[in-house]
Design a protein around this nucleic acid. Structure first.
Length: 493
RNA sequence: GCCCUCAUCGUCUAGCGGUCAGGACGGGACCCUUUCAAGGUCCAGACAGGGGUUCGACUCCCCUUGGGGGCACCA
């Protein structure tokens, strides 16, 4: 392996609720990049909009990262050499930067009221002109502005050069250039003295020595503003990695309606963190023909420069498949433990907790290849936990081979019950051999008999392997259920 | 309206001037099989369109079309 420069990268969420799944994917890529290069992954809370703050967000955000195994080296909870990692606690830094920009003529105070700005925007729209601040306060002499600032509300705007163009370097697409005249004098400090994202980004990513700024490409259009800010403050510009958004299957924004949930919801719904990690990582990025890659493998091969530029569509089916792959690869004992924990959530309250682990381990091999999600387990195994399995409606027995053959079906069930009642060894091989003999004796195909038995014993037509299941259910209940079904069918014959 | 950006099977992608355009999900068929799965084999399926550049374009350039994003005292 060639030598790689360790990257200092960051995940910078706002505490406005559960992070969007696209946001989580960016976090995954960012984390992988840090780990791949042997650098640092930093978490920083961007809480500069007090009005949008949702209580508990930080816990949910860190919980999501933790669940996915995205360990951080510095952050709001653990601190670090550039603490604090919460923007609302760093206001002094933003004020100092603002003062410098003001003093050097790169920024100015703006006294326009929200109403005035609103009016301006309406007028621009009516005249079919590009919206944007027109610079009404740009040329107020600084002595006057300072005096007004004493008793008037104001924001601070960055003075964007009217001429020329600005080019930012994006790792994925190379130089991106915009004409400065298409940029307006954007706000860097709000009237509540909190910075906007633009200022906070520039100040903090500089202070924290971030080498690569990874973020969604909704930021690409404002990257030139940030470049201008870096330049005005004489800070070195970081490398940018603007990654595309994730699209909904029909196009447009991804929402819950399309099966996209927050990371924590995926956890609740029976997904494995490694599966979600793998899946999100390969939607919008790929490594040759490999699709199933362990965390270690991803760290090893992840190349941030290979993120695809076209927005990817969220494929819930592929995620489910991926989850099934991980479930099947898992060591049996570990899997049984996951099943047990899930069943302790899903099983009816009358089943005593904690579940008997060795019992779960008995049926784990029978179902491990039949599930994609942990929530698929319950419907497959619930009958193991029911002392009584009511006989399904008679019509369910009388299908296919047994259609209009009630008498024969009842006879078959009776024969099976008698034969099973008579055997001494209650293991899967003996059961199968016995029932095959029963089928021969009553002149039925083995599969046709099995389907009757399955329905009578389990109450379902789709189940884990029959004979192993019967062993778990036990001889007494099996024979009883067969007899009950026989009687029910005879009653209508 | 203006600005930025992207473009290979239905979906995620490989390709980085010369390939029968490869793989995975999903779909179909068959095999295996007590149901359902899993597994195995096989099949269908793509370079948006038009101009250039070149001996040669999926690959480079331009235009068109289409998609995505941005234009807040939100991030």
């Amino acid at each position: 392996m060639t030598s790689i420069t360790p990257a200092r990268v960051r995940y910078a969420p706002s505490p406005t609720g559960d992070p969007h799944i696209g946001n989580i994917r960016t976090a995954i890529w960012t984390w992988l990049y840090a780990r791949h290069t042997g650098g640092q992954f930093i978490v920083r809370l961007e809480d500069t909009d007090q009005t949008r703050e949702v209580p508990g967000s930080l816990e949910r955000i860190l919980g999501s990262l933790e669940w996915l195994g995205l360990t951080w080296d510095e952050g709001p909870d653990i601190g670090g050499p550039y603490a604090p990692y919460v923007q609302s606690q760093r206001l002094d830094l933003y004020h100092a930067a603002t003062d410098r920009l003001l003093a050097e003529g790169n920024a100015y105070r703006c006294f326009c009221t929200p109403e005035e700005l609103d009016e301006m925007r309406k007028r621009q729209q009516a005249e079919k002109r590009a919206p944007g601040y027109e610079g009404r306060c740009r040329d107020i002499p600084s002595e006057i502005a300072e005096a007004r600032a004493l008793d008037e509300h104001f924001v601070v705007r960055f003075k964007v050069p009217r001429e020329g163009s600005t080019t930012v370097e994006d790792l994925l697409r190379g130089p991106v250039t915009v004409e400065n005249r298409t940029l307006d004098d954007f706000v860097i400090l709000k009237s509540d003295r909190f910075p906007t994202y633009h200022l906070a980004h520039v100040v903090d990513d500089t202070a924290m020595k971030i080498t690569h700024v990874t973020r969604g490409d909704e930021w690409l259009p404002s990257a030139p503003r940030h470049a201008l800010l870096f330049d005005a403050l004489r800070y070195p510009r970081p490398m940018y990695v603007h990654n595309p958004v994730i699209l909904a299957p029909g196009g447009g924004k991804l929402s819950k309606r399309h099966g996209a949930k927050s990371a924590l919801e995926y956890a609740e719904d029976g997904y494995l963190p490694d599966a979600l990690l793998n899946f999100l990582c390969i939607t919008g990025w790929g490594h040759g023909d490999e699709t199933v890659m362990s965390r270690q493998r991803l760290i090893e091969v992840f190349d941030i420069g290979n993120i695809s530029l076209a927005p990817a569509t969220f494929d819930a089916e592929r995620l489910n498949w991926m989850n099934g792959m991980y479930l099947r690869q898992m060591p049996e004992r570990e899997l049984a433990e996951l099943f047990a924990r899930r069943l302790e959530i899903d099983l009816p309250a009358d089943v005593p907790r904690p579940l008997d682990r060795s019992f779960v381990e008995e049926f784990t091999p029978l179902i491990r290849e039949r599930i994609e999600l942990l929530t698929d387990v319950l419907p497959l195994v619930d009958f193991y936990y029911q002392s009584e399995v009511p006989t399904p409606p008679v019509e369910q027995f009388l299908t296919k081979r047994w259609k209009d053959q009630a008498t024969a079906a009842a006879h078959a069930l009776g024969a099976a019950a008698s034969d099973l009642d008579a055997i001494g060894e209650w293991d899967a091989e003996t059961l199968e051999a016995t029932l095959r003999a029963t089928a021969t004796r009553i002149d039925a195909k083995a599969g046709d008999l099995f389907s009757l038995v399955r329905l009578a014993v389990t109450g379902k037509s789709v189940t884990p392997p029959l004979f192993e299941s019967m062993v778990i259910v036990g001889v007494g209940p099996c024979v009883d259920r067969l007899r009950a079904a026989e009687a029910a069918i005879r009653a209508v014959a």
